[in-house]
Design a protein around this nucleic acid. Structure first.
Lengths: 120, 120
DNA sequence: TATAGTGCTATACTTTAGTATAGTGGTTAC
DNA sequence: GTAACCACTATACTAAAGTATAGCACTATA
């Protein structure tokens, strides 16, 4: 109840909730963030692993997007001080919680494609 | 049950579900689509009304984004053949159903901002 | 008939996002 | 010692997204 009415309160003010939605969308913005998050959904991975798992991504973009995602607190970069160094990337709790958001996006996307292809 | 396992099946294949998520994100992509959808959340509006309600949008962008949104089937453009003509834009059923997706984005966005500001 | 509003479009430009290609400094395997 | 792998960075470019400014065809109002 308290939760629902809080959401309702926010939704009565577009400029506020547009900000909140933008916060969410910005985390996944661009061509490569989603594939990266998806690749990390199965567990921690190293830089070169990600580069191989995500077709056509360049190291430049991978590096940049990993930094963005880390800055947004949805993934964590760990440097193991072994020799040679091993660098691993994994989702944070916040990043993992994005899965719930992605789930509803998957459902809407599939539904939309169904009704859409039917019409046109 | 059938629904949940369908989602699970899709989620086991990243290339498929990344597509579905992209379908959803593309509908709201760019700087202006979300503000437009938000403005139409309260009911039908005319072109100039939208232009006034959305700060700093240019008619060029408004026109372009309205076309995109219409092409994506989330809003409908109606020309009333009165004199002078009145053009109205409103959400379709599909567009209105996006609200559920936006709701979870609002919740994640707010939660994320809370934990995030706490940390940095 | 001049002024203002509606619903746009056209042209030119800037800014941001993404690509292509090469290279660095370290490590290990042959 | 040279070839190859790791985790990137640097430079230069192209393409896409967004902005600025002006204008058009129409109607309504004074």
């Amino acid at each position: 109840m308290g939760r629902l009415s809080e959401l309702d309160k926010i939704k009565s003010c577009p400029s506020t909730y547009v900000l909140a939605i933008n916060d969410t969308m910005n985390v996944l913005n661009g061509k490569w963030k989603l594939p990266i998050m998806a690749a990390l959904g199965f567990g921690k991975k190293r830089f070169r692993e990600l580069e191989r798992d995500i077709p056509n991504i360049t190291p430049r973009m991978l590096s940049k997007e990993l930094k963005d995602l880390e800055a947004n607190g949805v993934l964590k970069r760990t440097v193991h001080d072994s020799i040679p160094v091993v660098v691993e990337y994994e989702l944070t709790k916040s990043g993992a919680s994005l899965e719930a958001v992605m789930d509803v996006m998957i459902e809407w996307g599939l539904q939309h494609r169904k009704t859409f292809i039917g019409k046109y």
